[in-house]
């Protein structure tokens, strides 16, 4: 039952993605590329790129894309619902819980461990994408260029994505 599998996979992704955005990438990639073979490595990076220039969180964008690719519009709906549902359930539970135990700092205690883990996950995402995409000297130059612009001048990801697309068009003749 492919629809059920889509739902469960994206429910899992929604459930365990802390830290938002890039921190989710290794988990999404593991499920979608390695375990289920729904996307190729390149396709996965392309979706990350598309997510940079379209509205909405990466997790939802990839759920919609993968769902559509595997099972059409129904698949897209099921996967998107799957990735959002844990948020809804957990937030509703937390709302009741946290209002009751506002003085208890368990969230802070958990985040003492989670914060460096989120950082490690994003580093892993960067390495996985680097490994797949930087396959030559020209690619390395683009990587370095964007890395410096992003870190030093805090340029917007939308602008950087468009800029590197134009660069790619002229460099890879």
């Amino acid at each position: 039952m492919i629809l059920l599998k889509l739902f469960i996979t994206f429910f899992k992704i929604g459930m365990f993605s802390f830290g938002g955005g890039y921190a989710m990438l290794p988990l999404i990639r593991l499920q979608v590329v390695e375990i289920n073979n729904w996307l190729s490595n390149k396709e996965f990076i392309d979706i990350v790129a598309i997510s940079q220039v379209t509205p909405g969180p990466i997790a939802i964008n990839s759920a919609t894309y993968v769902g559509y690719k595997i099972c059409g519009v129904t698949g897209a709906v099921i996967s998107t619902l799957g990735v959002c549902l844990p948020s809804v359930i957990i937030m509703l539970i937390l709302l009741k819980f946290v209002i009751k135990f506002k003085d208890n700092n368990f969230i802070e205690d958990i985040f003492k461990f989670l914060r460096p883990i989120v950082l490690g996950l994003i580093l892993a995402a960067a390495m996985l994408i680097f490994q797949e995409s930087v396959i030559g000297f020209k690619e390395f130059l683009i990587f370095l260029f964007v890395f410096v612009l992003s870190l030093k001048y805090k340029l917007d990801p939308i602008l950087l994505t468009l800029l590197s697309g134009i660069l790619g068009y002229f460099i890879f003749m």
């Binding site: 995409s133 683009i142 964007v146």
Partner: peptide, 12 residues
């Protein structure tokens, strides 16, 4: 062009 840029943005 965009793929290596994604790696750069994530690492940044």
């Amino acid at each position: 062009g965009i793929r290596p840029a994604v790696a750069g943005m994530v690492l940044a």
